[in-house]
Simulated scan of single mutants.
Amino acid sequence: MRTALVAAVAGAVVAFLLGLLTFGVQATVHPHDVPLAVVAPPPIAERVKAADSPEVDLKVVGADEARTLLADKEVYGVLEISPGKATIRLNPAVNPSGTQVAQQVLTGVAQGAGLPVGVEGQVVSAAERTAPLAASALLWVGGMISGLLFVVLKGRRLRLLSAVTTAVLVVGSVTGLLAWWGVTVSAKTLSFLLAVAVSFALLQAGLFKQLGIRAMGVLGILYLMAPAVAGQVPELLNPAYKAVLWSWTPFRFSAEGLRSLMYGGSIGAEWWVFGGIALAGLVLLLAGKEAQPDRADGVVDVGVHEADGLPRPERQHTA
C-alpha cells in the first residue's frame, strides 16, 4: 500500500513540475514592453506616443537610429511614416515570434493614422524560422542518445573520443536535414553548429560518467523544458519564467546565434557560453572515477574477499 501511494504521489508531482516548466511557459505568454521604433513627422509622432501601452514600448526616433536599432536587434520592427504611406521594416535575424508581434502592432498604428502600409524585409520560409531551435534541440538529442548508449553498452574507454565523434556526425546529419529543408548553411554557421554540438556532447558525456544512467534525469528534463522557453520572445514571457529559465538555457543562446549567422549577422557572447559548457564537460570527464552501475542481482560489491573470513551471502555456494 505504501509503495503504491508513493508511486502515485511521485507521478502527480512530476506531472505538475513538468507542466509548470513546459506548458506553463506557453500558457502564461503575454506581451509587455515589446520594443518597437517609429519614424514619423512631429504631429503623427505625438499621436504615436499617446498610443503607447504596457504591452509595447514605442520609441519615436530618427530614420538612421531606427535602422541601427533594428540591425542591432534592439527593436523587433520599425514603422516609417512618410506623407501618404507607411512602411514596416523587419529584420529576419530577430526572433520570428517577436517579428510577428511587431508587424501586428505596427500595422495597427499605421491603420490608426489612416495610412496604407507595406512591409519591407527578407522573406523567411517556415523552414528558416524553425531551423535555429530545431538544430539546437537535435544537437542535444544526438549527444544525449550517444552518451546513454555508451553507458548501456558498458563502455569504459575512449569516452572523450566518442563524444567528439558524436558531435561531428550529428552536425553532419543536422546539416543534411537543413539542406533538405532548403536552409543554406555558411561556413561560419557550420563552425558554430560544431561548437554547440561539441559542448553539448562533452557536457553530456561528463554527466554520464559521473552519474551513470541517472544523468538522464537531468538531461531529459533540460530537453523537455528548455526548447519551450528558448523559442519564446523574452518580452512575451512571464517575468518568473524569463528569470528562472530563459535567462540561462543554452538552447536560447544556440538558437539566437544560429539565427544571427544565417542572415549575415555576428555573434560574440555565444562563443563564450559554449566554450564554458565545453570546459565544464571536460572537467567532469577528467575528474573522479567512473560511476559504478548496480549489479543486476541487486548485490553491491563492497570489495570483501574470502580471505577476510566473513560469511558469504546465503545464495553463494562453494564448488
Score class of each variant (00 low, 15 high):
190 L>G: 12
159 R>S: 14
82 S>W: 04
105 V>D: 04
173 S>H: 07
183 V>M: 01
158 L>H: 11
156 R>P: 12
168 V>T: 07
141 V>G: 10
112 G>I: 03
183 V>D: 08
129 R>G: 03
181 W>F: 12
157 R>T: 05
193 L>M: 12
154 K>N: 08
183 V>P: 00
100 Q>C: 15
165 T>I: 15
118 G>Q: 10
177 L>E: 10
164 V>A: 02
117 V>K: 05
139 L>D: 08
140 W>V: 04
160 L>K: 14
139 L>T: 04
93 A>L: 04
177 L>R: 04
191 S>K: 14
87 T>D: 14
137 A>M: 14
160 L>Q: 06
84 G>W: 07
114 G>N: 12
155 G>L: 09
175 T>R: 07
153 L>A: 01
176 G>Q: 11
167 A>G: 12
185 V>Q: 01
144 M>G: 01
135 A>H: 15
191 S>N: 11
178 L>H: 02
144 M>Y: 15
102 A>F: 11
115 L>P: 04
148 L>W: 10
168 V>C: 00
111 Q>Y: 00
91 N>M: 07
157 R>D: 14
86 A>N: 09
177 L>K: 00
97 S>W: 12
93 A>K: 03
151 V>L: 06
169 L>C: 02
132 P>D: 13
138 L>C: 06
117 V>C: 09
185 V>K: 05
189 T>S: 12
115 L>E: 15
128 E>C: 02
113 A>Y: 12
105 V>Q: 07
158 L>K: 15
150 F>Q: 00
83 P>F: 13
188 K>F: 14
117 V>R: 01
183 V>L: 13
178 L>N: 12
109 V>Q: 07
127 A>V: 01
177 L>F: 05
132 P>N: 14
178 L>G: 14
178 L>F: 12
191 S>Q: 15
186 S>F: 02
161 L>V: 11
109 V>T: 10
176 G>W: 01
